[in-house]
């Protein structure tokens, strides 16, 4: 009973807004510090890979970006399902706030993957199951964002896009296995993405630091975005009026 009340308390935009406001500076701080450490380690400290030379340094941003983009899709579809089934407004807004960041990470993942693939496997792009499915995930993100912004009524927009996110999520594994099958039929693959050489422990640590930094970045950016959405949707409520009056009065001092 107490537990359900706890969740109810935080699922109300009115209480979530100040709470998330306190959380954001921490996320920004963690992201900034860890990104600085990660970049320093990744570009200046870790030794070159014995096989790939210095081109491998791309993985310090490629791997975290790809991981985050996939995790964000799952979390987004999860929030979308929660919003659709239990009609939780905050979950709907959270799903929408994650999508642009997920799409950006997918673009970064594709771009850095192409630039890493060229020196490593000799091609910017191959029609491998992983790469193709990953590209399709970008299309799903784009469709989600486009549908959400095309519908004017915010409730309908978030519900319709939530259903799309769920349908897309169900399709991702089907697409992956289809492309995999298609690929084995067409030609035996000579270059297999993902077969990394033995990784040095400092390299692994650097990558983990970057992963945590990207997590913190995602959290910060999506919280800022969801706060913007909250303000826009709740602009007629009294708590927003009080909040903004307080902040503008505070600024004038």
């Amino acid at each position: 009973m107490a537990k359900s009340r706890f969740w109810l308390y935080f699922s109300s935009p009115k209480t979530f807004y100040p709470f998330s406001g306190k959380l954001i500076p921490w996320c920004v701080g963690v992201a900034a510090v860890l990104m600085a450490v990660g970049l320093y380690m990744g570009l200046l400290v870790t030794p070159p890979d014995y096989r790939m030379g210095d081109s491998y340094r791309i993985i310090y941003i490629h791997v975290p970006a790809v991981w985050m983009s996939m995790i964000i899709y799952m979390v987004m579809a999860g929030w979308a399902a929660v919003g659709l089934i239990w009609n939780v407004k905050l979950a709907e807004m959270m799903a929408g706030a994650l999508a642009p960041t997920g799409a950006i990470f997918t673009v970064i993942g594709l771009w850095t993957g192409a630039l890493w693939g060229r020196p490593t496997w000799g091609a910017y792009w191959v029609w491998d199951a992983r790469l193709t499915t990953y590209l399709v995930m970008l299309f799903l993100y784009m469709g989600y964002i486009a549908l959400r912004s095309a519908i004017d009524d915010p409730r309908r927009a978030s519900k319709a896009s939530a259903l799309l996110a769920i349908v897309g999520g169900i399709n991702v594994p089907i697409i992956y296995f289809s492309v995999k099958w298609w690929n084995t039929l067409h030609q035996p693959f000579t270059v297999a993405p993902g077969q990394e050489s033995k990784i040095d422990p400092t390299m692994l640590w650097t990558m983990m630091i970057m992963v945590i930094a990207f997590w913190a970045y995602t959290l910060a950016v999506s919280l800022i975005r969801v706060r913007c959405d909250i303000l826009e949707r709740e602009k007629n409520s009294s708590w927003v009026a009080e909040l903004l009056q307080g902040s503008s009065a505070g600024n004038k001092q």
Binding site: L43, G53, D54, S55, R57, I58, I61, H62, A65, I108, W111, T112, L115, W116, R118, P119
Partner: peptide, 13 residues
């Protein structure tokens, strides 16, 4: 020797 690949990746990111 991989300046183009590495810096384009980091730059765009």
């Amino acid at each position: 020797g991989y300046a183009g690949f590495v810096w384009w990746s980091y730059g765009v990111t």
